[in-house]
Design a binder for these strands. Structure first.
Lengths: 253, 253
DNA sequence: TACGCGGATTTTGGATACAATATTTGTGCG
DNA sequence: CGCACAAATATTGTATCCAAAATCCGCGTA
């Protein structure tokens, strides 16, 4: 099966692969800075998405050549893509053995959420006193988009919005390095959340909590806000771990 | 100038490059698992060390070919090494522009230490109740090695020991992912600490604090231990930032 | 039948060659 | 003299080819 190499503008988007050879026809008229992502990045983005949405399962070993053929490129950019994903922790590269999709133990999955609590609470606490009307405005917008997309059932989109929302909440903290660290951790978290998103959504009072986060932040009540955030993530962790335990038990039989 | 490609066993060590072609002469008799590091890893380790010890300065742009020639390899493994260092945050890779040694702003340097506090304290707090005599024993050993190497003036060695010591303190927490995150952050931290190690050493009551950490941990006094740890890192941050401010001011003139 | 050993196959790793992209230099025109 | 544009150069990115390593498979032997 061949994955088409699409040609498309994507100043922000991350989900298509573009072939530089076919690019000469374009005349760029917009002023918007267009950062062409490199082939390895494009491939990495696509593989990443395939891991996050579960198409590439935990533990699966990835063949460079297979992917290269799918994307119609040589193994070289695929290798670089895998190297990047390895750095992100989504795949594990072993010396002459190639790549396997990372499979975390249940303990490690728990650890991922503990890390989220640790880092997100720190960011939130730093952000709240620094939040200005524009920041709050931005959060409000994303929150509304999230609320209206609840039923849309587009798992990937919801995951992205969720991440954007949390990012917006922490933006005022102005901590780029911490955000990078968090981003990588969230990639892992997302992966397991998405597995069970449909189940988790209906039970979770997540929507209400999301709004509470913003309201407490707006009121400058840092302690209360951080409390909600901690509980929010801890609850997600708890629900998710239960589901994962069942899933792993099923797989073993 | 050519960097020799050394042949040497290094089950743990990270600082030499070995050429697999010359390896057949060896007969491995020890049972110890010997993981041969790949060429890119070996190169990455060497470049990493050169960045950490300041030989490759902040902001310097790195030419693949230049390194390839030094190490007597093609550009390919060098590229992979750079890709890894990019993931670690020690260099920044830009699309068709190559790699530059990461230069952090003073704010970011501060952030690095805040991250250390956040994560190390979390680890320490989790570790203390779980520490057993073997754990304490191991810490004791490393601590003594550190104390006796204080005057040795081997900056690289001291840095490694310091990291080992902190790792040993947190080992009982059994948090591999958190440790990975911390490791990456420590790479950055080390870089700036090493720049001023000779200056910082003489003034710091670090030795005393290091021992206190262990004693409080041994006594199970988590709060006190974490307090010392926080102050220890915060003090390092403060001292270091002052030195960095001067350094940056000098560079601008 | 179980186990070990050696060759065949598959898969990854690295070098070289070539293509695409960025930078620099030089030249002509205003 | 300065600026814009274009050729030349330097540098990175990708493909192809060969080498090294791992895995698989079958054979022989205990």
């Amino acid at each position: 099966m061949e994955r088409g190499i699409l040609l498309e503008f994507q100043p922000e988007g991350d989900n298509c692969i573009q072939n530089s050879k076919q690019n000469e026809n374009f005349k760029v008229s917009s002023k918007r800075a267009i950062v062409r992502q490199s082939l390895p990045d494009a491939i990495a983005s696509d593989i990443r998405e395939r891991i996050l949405n579960g198409e590439l399962e935990e533990g699966l070993t990835i063949r460079q050549e297979a992917l290269a053929e799918e994307y119609n490129v040589s193994r070289m950019p695929v290798r670089e893509a895998l190297k990047r994903l390895d750095a992100e922790g989504l795949v594990q590269l072993t010396n002459n053995l190639g790549a396997t999709v990372t499979k975390h133990s249940l303990d490690e999955i728990g650890e991922i959420f503990d890390l989220r609590i640790l880092i997100e609470v720190d960011l939130f606490r730093r952000a709240i006193p620094a939040m200005t009307p524009p920041h709050l405005q931005k959060c409000e917008e994303i929150l509304e988009a999230m609320e209206s997309s609840y039923d849309a059932d587009d798992v990937g989109k919801w995951g992205a919005l969720n991440y954007d929302y949390h990012s917006a909440l922490y933006a005022a903290a102005n901590r780029s390095l911490t955000n990078d660290v968090l981003h990588r951790i969230n990639l892992q978290s997302d992966r397991y959340v998405r597995m069970h998103l449909s189940v988790m959504q209906q039970r979770d009072p997540a929507a209400k909590e999301h709004r509470e986060l913003l309201e407490f932040a707006r009121a400058g009540k840092a302690d209360e806000a951080c409390d909600v955030l901690t509980r929010h993530i801890a609850q997600t962790k708890k629900n998710l771990l239960r589901l994962m335990i069942d899933k792993r038990a099923d797989e073993d039989s």
